[in-house]
Design a protein around this nucleic acid. Sequence first.
DNA 1: TATTGTTATACTCTATAACTATA
DNA 2: TATAGTTATAGAGTATAACAATA
Lengths: 166, 166
Amino acid sequence: MNDRSPRLSPTELAAYFAFTEVSSLLRHAVEKQLKDVGKLSYVQFQLLARLGDAPDGSQRMTDLADGVVYSRSGLTYQAQSLEERGLVTRAPSPEDERSTIVAITAEGRAVLAKVFPGHIEAVQSLLFASLDDADVEVLARVMTQVSGHLRANPPRSAGPRKVKAD
Amino acid sequence: MNDRSPRLSPTELAAYFAFTEVSSLLRHAVEKQLKDVGKLSYVQFQLLARLGDAPDGSQRMTDLADGVVYSRSGLTYQAQSLEERGLVTRAPSPEDERSTIVAITAEGRAVLAKVFPGHIEAVQSLLFASLDDADVEVLARVMTQVSGHLRANPPRSAGPRKVKAD
DNA sequence: TATTGTTATACTCTATAACTATA
DNA sequence: TATAGTTATAGAGTATAACAATA
């Protein structure tokens, strides 16, 4: 076996396990809320939210894909699904005929508005309810730092050196 | 629109977004590593890891399902898949013929061992690399607290009061 | 030729409901 | 009757590769 096995301190292990559990439960709860209230998958919600935030409520497929880690075909699939429900429209870009511009509709915004309160509430009651202000600030600081680190470093998806075993 | 809309402070929002991003990227990276190195889905890894931790390397289906939030049929599906690959065995319990005992095999342990170093490495390099000891301790403390909160409170999946809109 | 996006296709995962068997 | 699991089935999501159109 490799002699470079575990390299996490007990504290790191504890942090990792707890982090994993929290993110899993929170994600689960949020997904259920989105599905129950707005019949949206998490990805679909992310797409709508991004469009809702965009200045004119629209973005190119490629830009959307950049934000939500996603294969292009997967994005097409979701965009189609949202379009069929009338939550977005798709049209070729006037500037570059190759591009498709996805735009959120009034109906799309309505669904977003319908879903948002419960979403916030879930996050509030599950993630923050048991934390005091200082904890929240620390959490924000630490998570922001990690997130910056992740953006800076290419997510090589881990596994630089192959485990030559076998 | 509801007058009970957003109720997250700016700091909470920042913490939530960063947390979401980190957990998403980390999960993604870990899943890819598990798949590349061990051809395991995340759930399958969890199942194997649990069995590997169990005193005698075995557990009842029900006990496994308790740990990994899962429908029974979903668990059966994964257990079957792992059994076909020779990573676990399934046999009726001697004590209660209704129960199925799932046990990890030597091959299963081998896959676990093969996957583990890269898994740890991913967590190390993605989650902890940019944090100092104090940060890690704080993260462990905060996450443990939230996780305790989540366990204590029924994950009502959020949405106690319906958004009566529409 | 490079880029943008779609289509065809195939596979994995998950859940619900019906069913079997043991307690 | 209640519990443990499996099976049948169906649907959502994802990815890869081939393709069409535009730059």
